[in-house]
């Protein structure tokens, strides 16, 4: 299988889907002539031209709305936010229009659109450019929220998202763009709504997604040396959540730690933990623990920022907690 960077896998997904369907177009800031702020759209403008790869002014609300309007009448736009932090400027369009349109119109208009872009605490970007908004978007019925952690899923999930008839919030991670991995050639789709058991284990279930998968796997590996068998699940789709895969694992291990690059209060883990508690409370041998970003705005200072992240040490500590190994 070819080895591709996460960035190139995304590029390949868009190129293949645009080749397949003329209704698919890419719009956003610097996506065309500049080849994308993070070079995800490298070469697409040259290949598909200005009709289908469209640079916009810095008007997130405007071009998000244009995308939605065009989707209501049959196009399949990919709207790139240079970073998802900027989607906050367009949030009315996403939440009021994209998420609600089908419902409000009694099923007459659907919005097959992908909003995609980078996200996460990418390093020294400070409070305004380090937002992780997946919990906010996952809150809203009508939206699909997808966050790939690997190059293969970056491609497979983006292709599925473009083909989805519903609005998809497709959140990439800036620090993953250079991560390489095996990516199947051609038309291989990763299904939306399916988590991936990345590592099997029997003692504890570790739920995570996006960049945090890397540290979570490292923590699992470290504990394997101490005889702890951790099962690692990459959620991949945050809404709709693949509850079956999660519950199957928790029923097996009886313990769970949720790891996310997100604030703790009302975060993804909070919602997922609640669903586990409601469904399989009697299978739990310990309270579910969560490893999150610390509850403060994101500072510019490198060390302060690093101290907030879910590090391997912090993950290991919480795993030991649920295994009662800290006493």
């Amino acid at each position: 299988m070819p080895i591709l960077a996460y960035r190139d896998a995304l590029n390949q997904a868009m190129a293949e889907e645009m080749e397949r369907d003329d209704n698919v177009y890419l719009m956003g800031e610097e996506v065309a002539e500049y080849n994308g702020a993070y070079k995800v759209s490298q070469g697409l403008w040259e290949r598909f031209g200005s009709r289908r790869v469209i640079d916009t002014p810095i008007s997130e609300e405007g071009f998000a709305g244009i995308g939605i309007g065009s989707a209501m009448v049959g196009l399949r736009p990919i709207i790139e936010f240079m970073t998802f932090s900027f989607s906050l400027v367009a949030i009315d369009q996403i939440l009021n229009n994209a998420a609600n349109m089908r419902y409000m119109s009694g099923g007459q208009f659907s919005v097959p659109i992908v909003f995609r872009g980078s996200s996460g605490m990418a390093g020294c970007l400070a409070a305004t450019h380090s937002h992780r908004l997946e919990a906010i978007y996952s809150h809203f019925p009508g939206l699909t929220v997808v966050m790939p952690a690997t190059a293969a899923d970056a491609k497979g999930l983006l292709k599925s998202s473009i083909r989805s008839d519903d609005p998809v919030i497709f959140i990439e991670h800036e620090n993953l763009y250079g991560e390489k991995g095996e990516v199947p050639d051609g038309d291989v789709l990763t299904p939306i709504g399916k988590a991936n058991v990345v590592r099997e284990g029997s003692d504890v279930t570790l739920l995570t997604y996006s960049r945090s998968l890397i540290n979570t796997l490292a923590a699992a590996e470290q504990l394997a040396g101490e005889g702890v068998s951790a099962e690692v699940i990459d959620l991949r789709t945050l809404r709709p959540l693949d509850l079956d895969t999660i519950l199957t694992s928790v029923v097996k291990t009886h313990r769970c730690v949720i790891i996310e690059e997100n604030w703790p209060y009302c975060g993804i883990g909070a919602g997922v933990a609640d669903r586990i508690y409601q469904k399989v409370f009697d299978e739990l041998d310990a309270p579910i623990r969560r490893v999150t970003v610390k509850d403060a705005p994101i500072p510019y200072n490198r060390n302060l920022e690093a101290s907030m992240l879910p590090t391997v040490d912090r993950i290991v500590a919480k795993i030991n907690d649920v295994l009662y190994r800290n006493a």
Binding site: G62, G65, G69, S70, L75, N97, F109
Partner: peptide, 23 residues
């Protein structure tokens, strides 16, 4: 394509519809 209740929110939608017509 609807009545829209957030003031001004549908103006980009209209623009998108026009974009699609041209596209």
């Amino acid at each position: 394509l609807g009545g829209h209740a957030i003031v001004g929110s549908h103006i980009p939608l209209a623009t998108g519809v026009a974009f699609a017509a041209k596209y």
